[in-house]
Design a protein around this nucleic acid. Structure first.
Length: 454
RNA sequence: GGCCACGUGGCCGAACGGUUAGGCGCGGGUCUGCAAAACCCUUUAAUCCGGUUCGACUCCGGACGUGGCCUCCA
């Protein structure tokens, strides 16, 4: 059975055929490490982790190469670095910022149940490769030097705009771009730019400077995956200009008509019905959400929406996801989780069909209803939804009440004594008292259990 | 203004040219001293206007709405 994926190049679902029949190469645009990861960053991380898992299942875990870059050269980074560490040398300050954010990002990815990519190359470690491509583009007349900048000449690539379905004419017509004096054409973009003293810089044939945004992906994807590879992924907002420019650069440099065979884009994310936006403060940091919800809940909530659909990220949907998780967890506790179980057919086939996770989750509800808990468990495992640590998360909650466990136990005993004496007024008082403190009692056949409520 | 995606029941969210999606929530019930949990039952749909068709939520056109990209935010 083939994997079917929606290819942004052809604008349709296609059966996936890798270049080499027995292995797969995938490149995904990773984070610019200048600020703490937010919920919007989580979507591509989770979506492409799922694709990685799916490909590994089909082709073998050692047959899939997944490269996710780390963009650690960017003017936003410079700004933050000089603000945060005004006393440090700019390069050291930048390293402080990027190292710190990179660690948080990786730690967060793990909490979201994501496997580590095969490699996470940093842009600053590939300046040489970028310069090499830029030199080649100059030789080709695909680029020109102007006012110490190296600029890509858009007219040297006839297919420009194909991926994002834009014509050069339309782009020019709608251009609100302030035309920089060093650009011959407003759509031309920067490959290399000069650096001021307070900006990071590397030596180059064009003087001390730094790379433009797009060139790093062309350089790193070629280095680790080859001139043409199977899958290039990222958020749909990257299709233009980022991926479009990458394609133009890579194809002109290699004299190819393609960079990757499949471009896969995940949809955008809104928060409580409104556009996510840093400037208006409509943004949710993953660290905040992770304090309230386990990573598995975030992951399940993300996968309840098909990856190409826009998601409206709401507190309510998160609560729903958590309800489902709790329900499933209780069921699964009754079975032996250590018995290895292959991913059930219905779930696997749903995922093969352009990663239809909502459909897969529907099947999981069916398993639950039919009490086929081992199938449910295997499905969760395949989706990377980790029940074991979710389990711990619930138990951890129980250990951190504002009143001590001892005090709770004492009150429970007191209440049970009252119940035996049919003093229900007193027993209800105790129940209410605990409820106010966030402790809910459950009278089971073999005693009274309690749990923290939110 | 240009290009694109989407608009399903209280909420989330699929499939499909003709048959009940599913989940969450609400309501009712069983259980319980009362609750909670669990289980059972129940509820409802397709933004609007045309067209194609024996038949459209599903295909086509238009309107309206939401969102994305065109401004180095995934």
């Amino acid at each position: 059975m083939d994997i079917f994926l929606y290819n942004s190049l052809s604008k349709q679902k296609e059966g996936f055929m890798p270049i080499k029949s027995d292995s797969v190469c995938m490149y995904v645009c990773g984070p610019t490490v200048y600020d703490e990861p937010h919920i919007g960053n989580a979507r591509p991380v989770i979506v492409f982790d799922l694709l990685f898992r799916l490909l590994r299942h089909k082709y073998g875990s050692d047959k899939v190469k997944y490269i996710r870059n780390i963009t650690d050269v960017d003017d936003k980074i410079n700004k933050i670095a000089s603000q945060k560490y005004p006393d440090l040398d700019i390069n050291e300050a930048i390293r402080e910022v990027t190292n710190k954010i990179e660690i948080i990002f990786k730690d967060t990815s793990i909490k979201l149940g994501c496997l580590e990519p095969s490699r996470e190359p940093r842009a600053t470690e590939h300046i040489t490769e970028m310069i090499e491509i830029i030199e080649g583009l100059l030789k080709n007349n695909s680029a020109y030097v102007s006012e110490d900048h190296v600029i890509f000449n858009i007219n040297s690539y006839s297919n420009y705009g194909y991926l994002s379905n834009k014509s050069k004419e339309d782009l020019l017509a709608g251009a609100r771009i302030e035309v920089a004096t060093y650009k011959r054409n407003p759509l031309d973009f920067v490959l290399w730019k000069p650096s001021a003293l307070n900006e990071p810089s590397w030596d180059s044939p064009w003087g001390k400077g730094r790379p433009g945004w797009h060139i790093e992906c062309s350089a790193m994807s070629a280095k680790y995956l080859g001139d043409v590879f199977d899958i290039h992924g990222g958020g749909v907002d990257l299709a233009f200009p980022h991926h479009e420019n990458e394609i133009a650069q890579s194809c002109c440099y290699n004299n190819n008509d393609k960079m990757a065979n499949y471009f896969i884009h995940n949809g955008t994310l809104n928060i409580e019905g409104k556009k996510m936006s840093k400037s208006t403060g409509n943004i949710i940091l993953l660290s905040d959400t992770l304090q309230k919800y386990h990573g598995s809940v975030i992951r399940l909530n993300m996968l309840r929406t098909h990856y190409r659909q826009p998601i409206d990220w709401t507190e309510r949907s998160l609560e729903q996801a958590e309800n489902i998780m709790r329900k499933w967890l209780l069921a699964i506790e009754t079975i032996n989780k250590d018995i290895y179980e292959e991913v059930p057919k219905e779930v696997y086939e749903s995922l093969l069909d352009d990663m239809n996770t909502p459909k897969a989750i529907t099947h999981m509800h069916e398993y639950f209803n039919k009490q086929e808990y081992s199938k449910l468990c295997a499905s969760l495992d395949f989706l990377g939804i980790d029940l074991k640590t979710f389990n711990h998360h619930i138990k951890k909650d129980h250990k951190m009440p504002e009143i001590s466990e001892n005090e709770i136990e004492v009150l429970i005993e007191e209440r049970n004594l009252a119940r035996e004496n049919k003093d229900y007024k007193k027993s209800d008082e105790i129940r209410n008292k605990l409820e106010i403190m966030g402790i809910r009692l459950k009278d089971m056949e073999n005693g009274t259990a309690w749990e923290r409520i939110k």
